[in-house]
Design a protein around this nucleic acid. Structure first.
Lengths: 384, 384
DNA sequence: TTTAATACCGTGTGCGGTAACGGAAAAAAT
DNA sequence: ATTTTTTCCGTTACCGCACACGGTATTAAA
């Protein structure tokens, strides 16, 4: 295994750039690992007329190699299509890689629980390669908590980081530090506008809103759409659902120019206040048939209300497969959920980092938008 | 790595059963690999007062070990929670595992192409563990071709088999032979009623038909549903879409008892005849608004017709994400597609076999029903 | 010119297994 | 009692790589 990504020729394209002409680089790239690759470090050494120790020094860019030898060795490596055997590599090196995962903390049944499950899945994969995973949680409503999490991660000197960002500026500061330290990082859920990240796995938020509106309206003569929102303190927050709401609103104004969009803010912690707000909504909207949307994962708040009030004259669309949302879907208080496999996002992030650390291969695509799954009562039970 | 699954103590619970009491087995099971597990074969040897050669013989049940030593060693293994390091194992053993994948052959853009892609994905995973993959295709309309494929696979003596069955009896005969040889096999797409398989990955066919009907009717006052079917020769064939059609019909008769279901058979190879049939359909149905379904992946046949005839007064639902189906969806000739990730099914099958061969761990669940994805024009572009 | 410093490079050991080999002890045959 | 066979087990040589170590040219300092 390569000692550290930033010096290894397999990890750092710049180094290979310096020494290897394009056509050979192509050969290297073309080379497919594991496929009867019987070229060993000894073959390379022999072909280059040096010892394997020297080849190893080149491979890991540990220096103490003359420019001439280095060039020759790199050439031979390319020509022979040598790739280190990573079983032997892992076996011989006693390195301990660590990937830290920074995500919001959560209660049972909440959105981020699924992400944590994905982390466990990813752990299973990375564990095979001797890479350990450390989840680090923060309170998504508390900036300082996020700062503490970042500091903790930096202190543990991880080899890679997975991060679900919520605080824009602080995150940018943090990833800047990671870049300086040459620690690869992967965004999940949402990403920021820097571009030093190794990969991003998340939902296309704007399109999810657009899709949501399409399912909500579904050709009906819709005259008013209610967006239920969570009243939250938002200093420094980068709420990804804003983008989703934009997509939703755009669809409405394109397809239903006369449709009114009404925002209702509810309090997640105060049931009475919540019910009051919703009562008000129902009182004020003369249309017997209501169109209701929530852009975050909390549509079960609406469903609970409808259930309690025994109201069935609504078309309600929400997001994400929380257990509460699913039961609302099954009971018919929510007509559809738009879901994403946020567990797969987390798992993919870890897989990408693992492959990067072990195989020195970046992911095929940098930005990976996960599919938007439409769930109704007939297919939700097969949604894992 | 374990020499062969049937003798290896990690592969065969029976052997462990014989020698290790329950509470120790629990300890073994609890043991988590890779997590700072520093117990090596030498530790075991030392603790058992034998050489590592003897331990190795026990591990692989190669015999030439006294009952007493064996017992002692197994006890120590359990107590210490020893698990072989599979890097070292793979490195040291020059074994060549082979997984054969038997699937129908296909032309570009057809259903099984996606499955083949999944095989490639799986190959990437299995390749990491020195396991090679051999796809073997057969003509799904030609029994003898299937028999040839099976014979070929048996001749290559694979360590594991992935199979997408189409011919019921022949497949049962084939998997019986695999069982006798102690070769694990995994079903994809559909499965048969034997239960010797290691795992199954596929879509819940009945439910997919049910779901399809729900999306097709969607609350409309539907009085007639047209099922377009492919006229095919079907001796000995086990067509999985039959089940799907059943689900479809059941939904209709439950929700629309007065609705008429009409079957129209078209010829995939004869365009003129096909158009003739569809012209006839449109001529005979007085309702201006038609509800059309195809239960296989060929809904693009209908879409092409509608495009050519410039007909837009249909609600058309189909299955699977062929490129032709997608463009029909985008152009509005098909309203929705119900899709499955058949690539993931294949990849999961290979992964399961790989883990079984390398780690001696069966999959968490034997029957794995993949989710049913509802695709419309707004989310299909994010479907990978 | 001698010596010290530096730049380069080969050798060797070990990581945790696998499996062939050969030998000692026990059992069986003579 | 001796020989032969069988049973059982330790030794040893890898597998491909990482890395410490020590050595030899080469260059700089004295």
């Amino acid at each position: 295994m390569c000692g550290n990504g930033k010096n290894c020729i397999f990890g750092n394209p710049k180094i290979i750039d310096t020494f290897v002409p394009l056509y050979i680089r192509a050969a290297v790239a073309r080379f497919i690992m594991h496929e009867g690759n019987k070229v060993t470090i000894n073959d390379v050494a022999k072909a280059a007329g040096v010892s394997k120790g020297t080849v190893d020094r080149v491979l890991h860019d540990r220096g103490e190699v003359s420019a001439k030898s280095k060039e020759k060795i790199l050439k031979v490596i390319a020509e022979l299509g040598y790739r280190p055997n990573f079983y032997a590599s892992i076996l011989a090196s006693k390195k301990n890689y660590l990937i830290s995962c920074i995500i919001p903390e959560f209660n049972d049944g909440e959105f981020w629980e699924l992400t944590e499950k994905g982390i466990d899945q990813g752990k299973e994969y990375s564990g095979r390669f001797g890479i350990s995973i450390e989840p680090v949680m923060y309170d998504q409503y508390d900036l300082e908590s996020f700062q503490r999490a970042c500091a903790k991660v930096l202190a543990s000197e991880p080899s890679g980081v997975v991060i679900a960002p919520m605080f824009r500026n602080e995150t940018l500061k943090f990833v800047k530090e990671l870049s300086d330290r040459n620690v690869p990082y992967v965004y999940i859920d949402s990403k920021l506008e820097d571009d030093g990240y190794l990969a991003y796995y998340g939902m296309p938020m704007y399109q999810s809103g657009y899709l949501c509106a399409d399912i909500l309206t579904d050709g009906h003569p819709v005259r008013k759409v209610h967006i239920i929102r969570i009243a939250r303190d938002k200093r420094g927050l980068s709420d990804p659902t804003v983008t989703r709401r934009t997509g939703l609103i755009d669809y409405i104004s394109e397809h239903y120019p006369d449709c009114v969009i009404e925002n209702t803010f509810i309090d997640p912690k105060d049931k009475a206040a919540r019910y009051g707000k919703l009562d008000e909504l129902f009182r004020n909207d003369p249309d017997p048939w209501k169109y209701i949307v929530m852009c975050n994962s909390r549509v079960h708040f609406v469903a609970d209300y409808l259930r309690d009030r025994n109201i069935r004259t609504c078309r309600v669309i929400g997001f994400d497969v929380l257990e509460k949302n699913l039961s609302a879907l099954r009971d018919g208080y929510v007509q559809a959920l738009i879901a994403q496999h946020s567990d797969r996002q987390a798992a993919a992030a870890i897989t990408a980092l693992t492959d990067y650390l072990i195989l020195h291969e970046g992911p095929a695509k940098k930005d990976n938008y996960t599919q938007m799954d439409i769930l109704n009562r007939y297919n939700c039970d097969y949604y894992i």
